[in-house]
Design a protein around this nucleic acid. Sequence first.
DNA 1: CTGAAAGCGCTTACAG
DNA 2: CTGAAAGCGCTTACAG
Lengths: 348, 348
Amino acid sequence: MQREAMNKVQARVNLSDIARALGVSAAAVSNAMSGKGRISEDLAATIRKKADEMGYVPSVAGRALRTGRSGVLGLVLADIAHPLFPQIAQAIENAASDKGYGILIGDSRGDINAQTKAISRLIERGADGLIIVPRHGTRIAHINHPVAMIDAPSTPGNTVSADHWDGGVQIGSYLRKLGHRNIIVIGGYQDSNVQNDRLGGMKSALSDSARVEVIWVEALETQMGSGCPLGLVPKAQHGVTAFAALSDLHALRAVTELQRAGIDVPGRATVTGFDDLIWSINISPALTTMRMNMEEIANIAVRALITQIEQNSHAEGPVPGGTGDEEPSTKRVPMELVIRDSSGPAPP
Amino acid sequence: MQREAMNKVQARVNLSDIARALGVSAAAVSNAMSGKGRISEDLAATIRKKADEMGYVPSVAGRALRTGRSGVLGLVLADIAHPLFPQIAQAIENAASDKGYGILIGDSRGDINAQTKAISRLIERGADGLIIVPRHGTRIAHINHPVAMIDAPSTPGNTVSADHWDGGVQIGSYLRKLGHRNIIVIGGYQDSNVQNDRLGGMKSALSDSARVEVIWVEALETQMGSGCPLGLVPKAQHGVTAFAALSDLHALRAVTELQRAGIDVPGRATVTGFDDLIWSINISPALTTMRMNMEEIANIAVRALITQIEQNSHAEGPVPGGTGDEEPSTKRVPMELVIRDSSGPAPP
DNA sequence: CTGAAAGCGCTTACAG
DNA sequence: CTGAAAGCGCTTACAG
């Protein structure tokens, strides 16, 4: 019975099956499916119809072996568990699948040294190119493979990044206009390029109108223990009216730490974040934050990567895989200020 | 100059290159690398050494074409943007790469109907099997391909799931022991199997000792608008001492809503969540919650899937790909209560 | 214990 | 405009 059921499963249909059924050559079928070859529209239509009827699904393995390209892109993140990962992965997957590419994920399990290994694994798996989102401050070893980088300010090669500096400028200007003159910026890692850009932008927008103090959470926790209070309450009681976090994670900590002590947000203290993480609307008050345009970033990265890949396949000589640094370029995508309830005018 | 640089890139080394260099057959090399064939340990060692020297990397495309298997598993989520995705993806990726498999991601962009499409795309891309995390209440159409499901309580086939019911029992017992007799449960989607399991467990642990009321956020928001207050404050003022959310997202909302109104957590109200999302320790007070053992769940799912895949490849007849429902089984993995500061004894 | 050969499914020059 | 052939790199029966 099981055997019968299994025999019902039609064996996989391939090009030759269709060619045979129609009495044409495999080449004709191939050309009809890809639309590439010089083939009459009539025959092509007939072939496509038949292929459809027979439930033809091209074999990626066959194609990959012949063309030397797998149609798969590797997405490398230092730490998949990062809360931004969902947004990044979704945007990249959408952009890639629009272009007919699949996304293979690689994780270095939070271990910076493992990043190189994760990259090799992906290349060995046949990824045509890599999209890398490096961890704060990490340098990626030069790779002999098409690569696009996200948020890696000073790396050669195709890099696309949110305009973190301008994001800092935007939120800084916003706070200035609200009348805040005494501001604490809350950052995570002091060696993060992204956070330093954001901070730089904020300072440049605020320097002549406000006092700005910076707290680095990571450094504080190293001293005081993980999860320690950030000491925002006394600050709020002594004139600080705004807490601008460089990531929503720290903004969350600020909001709850203040509220817990009975300090009203935004009545007595404004709190803002960065990234518009998914839960930012699930807190009360909802978080004012800067949102990256991930769709745009993903589109640019994927487009740049695919361009490299397809150029390489037409390169002279028997040399698969280019060097990835032929045309360095960095593209910055504007961020958007999302105003919600956690921010308001400075109290008098 | 560029030409010179490119000529330095060694053309890809393949099996025959090694065979030629050593004067042995390609078969010998293949056997030496895989450790499968009957080949003398001496020759095998020589071959492996040479392969290493020459920088041999096996071609996945060649192998896939020949064996009919790609070494890639598809991970399908209804919505990649879900905050649990990082944990799931990381655990699955780790489990798979330990077994030598890669993970291809599929996203139905939040659209339930697109789930079937995402699945087909992954299969067409050559995924040997699929790991599916269905959306609340979704039924997956029967697929003629190896599949493992996560958190799909009543689906036939290999299913692994956190023991949500027991998780509910655990948190319910915990609240009972703390002396809470008037409890509000906050859920998201009323049609979520996962949430209903959790709720059922809680009720069963509490029913004879506490009054339990349930608020479904989704339903509330449909009426009152998204982001509306959940009305927890008046409840807290009228005798409710504990708010048990069925997901951390709602627990976050509860904590902030209560604190914002000056109700101390956990002094006047206990709040608990589910899932131990990454930011749960970034709120003040840190969130008491139930944690799934994602590593274990991922390991079981991946193992079950790979077993199916490798069985099928030895199946009788020219039938690649089995039916995926030969040996139904559901495995439940215990959850773990993580006690942090947001919970405490019921106030007198 | 080892080698020669066939073939997985596709695409791409090359003939006609 | 269409067909016949070669070959991408691998593994697996089959001979020896």
